[in-house]
Each structure stands twice: as C-alpha cells, then as structure tokens.
C-alpha cells in the first residue's frame, strides 16, 4: 500500500475491464485514479484491521437448495428483442479472430 499506480498498470486494468481510455484522457484518468487511491490510504492510515474478519454481505445467509422444478425460460424472440444484431435466432457479433 502506498505506491502510485503507473500508466501501464492502469492500461492493464482497463484492458481487463474491456475499456478504452482515449489518449487525450489518459493523464486525467491516471490523476483521478491515483486521487482515489490516495483518498483511501489517507483515510485508513492509522487503522489496523489485522484481526478483523471481512464482511462480504451483511446478512449471514446459509445457502439452501430449492426443488428443481422445470419452468419456461425467456422466449427466444423476447431475449433477442434488444439485441443490437441478431440472425437465425442467435446474437450476431463481429468476427472473433483479429487480423483476418
């Protein structure tokens, strides 16, 4: 905890999140992201949480199983109704392999 995020590290994160950061906004983005890290570090500077158990969800739920009852799913036409592109009852996307 304590180091600044580098431009390369930010680019890797953006890539992992399938996001583009335009050249013109790179500097502002990096400043803002580092500002968020600095804010968090400042706030927690004096806080020791070593012996604390993390909380993911506030309710202590136990996983339970419900009976496996078959039921109708979303009709295909309905599922495709919002698709930006569809063909033959499927979502159509651009080609997957680059440089071809």
């Amino acid at each position: 905890m304590g180091d600044r995020i580098s431009s390369a590290e930010m680019a890797r994160a953006a890539e992992a999140a399938r996001l583009e950061i335009a050249a013109a906004e790179k500097e502002d983005f990096l400043e803002a992201i580092n500002g968020l890290f600095a804010f968090v570090r400042r706030q927690w500077e004096t806080l020791n949480t070593e012996a604390v158990t993390p909380t993911a969800y506030v309710r202590n739920l136990k996983s339970v199983c419900r009976p496996d009852v078959p039921r109708a799913s979303l009709p295909r036409e309905t599922a495709l109704a919002n698709a930006p592109d569809a063909a033959d009852g499927c979502f159509r996307v651009p080609k997957i392999i680059e440089n071809q």
């Binding site: 399938r18 583009e20 950061i21 803002a32 997957i96």
Partner: peptide
C-alpha cells in the same frame, strides 16, 4: 461499430459509459 469482437467490447463500453463510470470501473478492477 468495430472490426472484431474485442474491439467491439472496448468501443461499446467507451461510447456507452461516461468517463466517470469508466473511472470507477478501472479503480474497481485495480
């Protein structure tokens, strides 16, 4: 619009989300 799938993801999310939402996502990824 994009030539291939990966570019489509990136451009779609670039155009669809505001810079503030994208910043939060990048911070979340980090």
């Amino acid at each position: 619009e994009a030539r291939h799938l990966h570019e489509m993801y990136r451009r779609t999310r670039h155009e669809g989300f505001s810079p503030e939402v994208r910043r939060r996502i990048v911070f979340g990824t980090l």
